[in-house]
Simulated assay, not measured.
Amino acid sequence: MKTRAAIVEGPGEPFRLVELDIDDPRSDEILVRVKAVGLCHTDLTIKEMLPAEMFPRVFGHEGAGVVEAVGAEVEGVAVGDHVVMSFRSCRECDRCRSGGVGYCEQTMALNYMGYRTDGSTTLHRDGADVSASFFGQSSFSELAIGNADNVVVIDPDVDLAVAAPFGCGFQTGAGAVLNTIDPDPASSLVVYGVGAVGLAAVAAASARGVETIVAVDTKDSRLDRAVRYGAVGVNPTDLPDGAFVDRIRELTAGGATAGVDTTAVSGVIAQAVRALAPRGTLVVVGLGESRLELDAVDLMQNGKIVRGCIEGDSDPQTMIPDLLAMQSAGALPLDELVTTYRFDEINTAVADVTAGEVVKPVLVF
């Protein structure tokens, strides 16, 4: 079969639309005609990080569409179903069985390496393999192959362009609050970086009834959106040098109960930890700098916790339907963050989100 896909030829290269060959789905696979796919920071970050030998490659991991074919071994998914595609997990290892599907022992092989676990690829060009299966889907393509563990059936009345970002970005931000922190209304939460993931975290905290929510960003347009979700906005560039942590402590009555960092910037994380209340927790969800410098005395003496979080500690099979139900009920109005682009406008969408002109670009076919 033929499919039109956005290919990246090498590290840091732009997306380019080409025609590729896609395999028929195997007995354990699902073929999805992608109708919409979110553009995520992870797509842009990893395409810069991977070595040249892992290209050419098709990214995309927030696909939503309609099932065209189902392998004979697949249960629970049928032709014609509307689906959101998310990350893969084996569902068999100890981590998966204990509920931590985001920490699956096979995470790297199933989501990042560019091929199936047997070494084959789902996409080809002129007889040569193209690295694919990104998050088990590579959905920057009109057709994508997924599996029962990462294809989530949703209500056909849901707008697929709105549903797509729940496959990763919205699920990550909301899940970090609802699953990982699980705040009570009397707590305080600070979200550092309020792009799509951060705003999902703010909206989830508001839905949970958290009394004090603070949003931190250097872009006032993003802070304005966070304020509409019930947060107090803080732009660090408006404060005198050295005043940032004191301002957060002032807004949170002496220190935040919890924080979510989406920036992955070492200096921001260090200040976020300092701004925590004793026994407070900072959840780190961003992908970026690999080393941190933290005040070990502060951590120990004040019982503070810094922990990572993958995909909001979510199981997509239950979390995505739950979040979509919250949105449908008006409790999680993330649809207003979405800006749609034609699929062939992918590089324009990249430029716009990088410049901060849009929050969540979604490509539609």
Rank of each mutant, 00 (worst) to 15 (best):
F343R: 05
A161H: 01
I320L: 05
L189K: 04
L276M: 07
C309G: 09
V83Y: 00
V77K: 04
P185E: 12
T218H: 12
G99W: 05
V74T: 07
D28Y: 11
C309R: 02
V79A: 06
V197A: 06
Q301M: 14
G233F: 07
L17H: 12
G114T: 10
V359S: 04
K2E: 14
S138G: 05
V350F: 02
S187L: 11
G146D: 02
Y112F: 15
H61W: 03
T121E: 10
D220F: 11
L337D: 00
V153A: 10
R95T: 11
L160T: 00
T340H: 01
E48I: 10
F87V: 05
I145L: 12
V306W: 07
A64I: 00
T212Y: 08
V232F: 09
V197Q: 03
E19T: 14
V283R: 02
T122Y: 10
G38A: 06
I248E: 01
S139W: 04
K35Q: 15
S120E: 12
A186M: 13
E345N: 09
V58T: 02
T252E: 09
G114Q: 06
F59A: 04
T3E: 03
K47H: 13
V297R: 13
R4T: 14
I305F: 15
G173L: 02
V177S: 03
S206T: 15
L299A: 03
L324N: 03
G99D: 09
D159F: 06
T3D: 04
V70F: 01
A203L: 11
V158R: 08
N179Y: 08
A258F: 10
P236D: 00
G80F: 07
V338Q: 00
R33E: 15
G63Y: 02
Y341A: 00
P14Y: 04
T281A: 10
T122I: 13
V83M: 03
T281V: 12
D21R: 11
G99R: 09
V265I: 15
V151I: 10
V364M: 06
V77W: 05
D23N: 15
R225L: 13
F170K: 00
E9R: 14
L332G: 01
M108Q: 15
G193E: 06
V232C: 06
A256F: 02
G259C: 05
V151L: 01
V273R: 05
I305S: 15
G242R: 08
V101M: 04
S141H: 03
N111F: 06
A253G: 13
D94S: 13
N302D: 12
R4P: 08
V18R: 13
T172K: 05
T172R: 00
D220Q: 14
A5V: 08
